[in-house]
Amino acid sequence: MDEHAPLESAGIEEPLDLVRLSLDERIYVKLRGDRELRGKLHAYDGHLNMVLGDVEETITVVDVNDETLEEVIRIVKRNCEMLFVRGDGVILVSPPSRA
């Protein structure tokens, strides 16, 4: 029991409390499909809807040649100053230390 005490005193009781501690920090977000985001967390809610700032989006594109059916993986990066992300696409949120 004792080892839980420090977490509770920091106001951490449930998973989303860790997201709260990432407010105003750069986080990594993995989404459904072929997308990942890195950006500064400005807001979130219980659905993991989020607003991120200075976002770098990483898209992993697979190009398939129609004749040979050979595939090539290509990484595309996009930047966006301010982005709302809908929570139902979020797979995981990782705090600043790993971003």
């Binding site: 499909g33 072929d34 992993t60 697979v62 398939v64 059916l69 595939e71 993986i73 797979i91």
Partner: peptide, 12 residues
């Protein structure tokens, strides 16, 4: 093909 490749890369 794409989905298999992406799945191999750890995407959902």
């Amino acid at each position: 093909i794409k989905n298999r490749m992406l799945s191999d890369q750890g995407f959902s």
